[in-house]
């Protein structure tokens, strides 16, 4: 793997870091399999691209993306809690609806940011090369997001959030409106996914309505790979594992793509197959390890 491929994988890993932390929140903390992210990630990209094109500061555009993603997630939460639609189905409904919404937001299937300001400008203007600037800035952002979630999960609301995922009867009996907790948490998770989309769009220079395909699988793969490799005994450990999992996942993909076996090499079209294999390995590894240890 070349240095550029390595830094590119880091950049992707950190850019998707927000998404992965969001997926951890719904999938692990809330026990809510949420496919909305496939739609909210491109929504974040679209909102960021449109607002930047309209002259909004790129950092401020991240906040717009966050708000839009939060709204999308809240819709899924409301469909699930107020309209009693199964969580998985509720998220799929929001996801396909977002495809149309994203086309409306951009007014076309894709939108370039060529020559427009991005969050990377302050760094590149200071003389840091593009390939170093993006991993550095996105790494700092991801670390801040991790700290934010670590703090949030230890607040009173965070405890209620954890209990909502683990034992809904118990937390209801303690006077917590679990509907509200679910709506806010799924909203926050999708807000994070949208920020990922906004960062990706700014570093790649374009937003595309199809860029969200497979987002949830990538998110789950990162969470599971992280848990398998780094453990999840405490909240802090699990959050760190999810973020590192995102990096490992992107590095594994980059490594596979740079692999050459005689005539054979992987192409980007093999990505889905590779992702599926990676998740299967990560899921079966702990069981295999236990078997080997017992012998």
């Amino acid at each position: 793997m070349t240095y550029f491929a390595f830094m590119g994988a880091l950049e992707q890993g950190f850019a998707y870091g927000f998404l992965v932390l969001g997926v951890y929140l719904t999938f692990r903390v809330l026990d809510f399999p949420d496919l909305t992210v496939d739609g909210s990630l491109p929504l974040g990209a679209a909102v960021s691209a449109v607002t930047i094109s309209a002259g909004v500061n790129p950092f401020v555009s991240l906040l717009f993306a966050l708000a839009a993603g939060f709204a999308a997630g809240a819709v899924t939460g409301i469909l699930n809690t107020k309209f009693k639609i199964l969580h998985l189905l509720a998220s799929i409904l929001t996801m396909i609806a977002l495809y149309s919404v994203n086309l409306r937001v951009m007014g076309r299937p894709n939108m370039t940011l060529l020559g427009k300001a991005t969050v990377l400008d302050p760094l590149t203007n200071a003389g840091i090369g593009m390939f170093n600037a993006a991993p550095l800035l996105f790494g700092i952002f991801s670390a801040l997001a991790l700290l934010l979630l670590f703090w949030l999960l230890h607040t009173a609301f965070g405890l209620a959030m954890q209990a909502t995922g683990a034992n809904r009867q118990m937390i209801t009996s303690q006077g917590v409106n679990t509907d509200r907790v679910i709506i806010l948490t799924v909203g926050l998770s999708n807000g994070f996914a949208a920020v990922s989309g906004a960062l990706l769009c700014q570093s790649q220079g374009a937003a595309d309505v199809n860029m969200g395909v497979g987002t949830i699988v990538a998110g789950l793969a990162s969470v599971i790979v992280g848990e398998t490799l780094f453990g999840c005994r405490s909240i802090g450990r699990a959050l760190l594992a999810a973020l590192l999992g995102s990096l490992v996942y992107r590095l594994a993909i980059a490594l596979a793509l740079s692999l050459k076996l005689g005539q054979f090499s992987f192409t980007p079209s093999d990505l889905n197959l590779l992702t599926a294999l990676l998740v299967v390995i990560a899921l079966t590894l702990p069981g295999l390890r236990n078997k080997v240890w017992r012998r």
């Binding site: 230890h154 607040t155 965070g158 303690q174 006077g175």
Partner: peptide
């Protein structure tokens, strides 16, 4: 905190 607001203070 039964019956009170579960806010953003320390758990």
């Amino acid at each position: 905190r039964r019956g009170k607001v579960h806010g953003l203070g320390p758990g």
